[in-house]
Amino acid sequence: MAGNGKGFRIFSNIVLAILTIFAVAPFVLMFVSSITEEGTIMREGYSFIPRDVDFSAYKYLLTGAKGIVKAYGMTILVTVIGTIANMALTMALGYLLSKQDLPGRNFLSFFVFFTMLFSGGMVPSYIIWSRVFKVSETFFGLLLPNLLMSPFNVILMRTYFTTNVPKEILEAAEMDSCSQVGMLFRICIPLSKPMIATIALFSALAYWNDWVNGMYYLIRRNDLSTIQYVLNKMQNQIDFFRQTAEASKIAKTTDIPSLGVRMAIAVVSILPILMVYPFFQRQFVRGIVVGGVKG
């Protein structure tokens, strides 16, 4: 906003700083817990101040999950390919729906929205993807099911194209006999950078954080596991042993620092995102600009 309200700007900074603390403080508490000896927490309570520092959770994580580096690579690969494909599909459909006078527009919008309400559930999805399209135990099992396009993002894109791209510009372009596809690349995409970057971010996050596809479609191919699937599997395993008294028959499950590992898992999975986020935002916006000019 063009600002004359300096007071408001200061106010914004303060409030956002407070919200940042609000968002991050629980993680600080848990990080401190992850490096505190577990018995100390049990006896003396959780605290923001580290006592009895103990890195066994991280040690366990590193020795327990040997494929972790490879899993990172797989995650990056599927995230990059997935996000690019996702952007293309989302923009194509969002742009089509943004045409107010498109024949069948209402029906198509409805067609997209309907998928947000109704779903056939886990078993039918699995049958379609695994038995009809044979994605099981392949890289496509990570890439294709569910994440390739989100109807939510399509509708966001559509709304953005309709409200934030001035009609006057589109009409002028039409006068200059610019094609409909050309308008997407020359006008709509350059004018929609913030939303495109946001949707790309959401899509990347969805791929990065996904473990469901790994669990459903990579039952036997451990070599294709993504980092989140490895971590989630570990966490489920720990939960299982905590909740099932009989399972403690397996000796030495007692050594697992359950609470600490959980937090260590969170740290390991969040850190990369935190590190690339600012870079990602800027580079991505720039990439879109270049693409738009060339298109």
Partner: peptide, 19 residues
């Protein structure tokens, strides 16, 4: 241009709805 997107919705969302 949007045909692949629509096809994806059909495969990923509508076909399982049979369930």
């Amino acid at each position: 241009l949007a045909l692949p997107s629509i096809a994806y919705l059909i495969i990923n969302n509508y076909m399982p709805m049979v369930g």
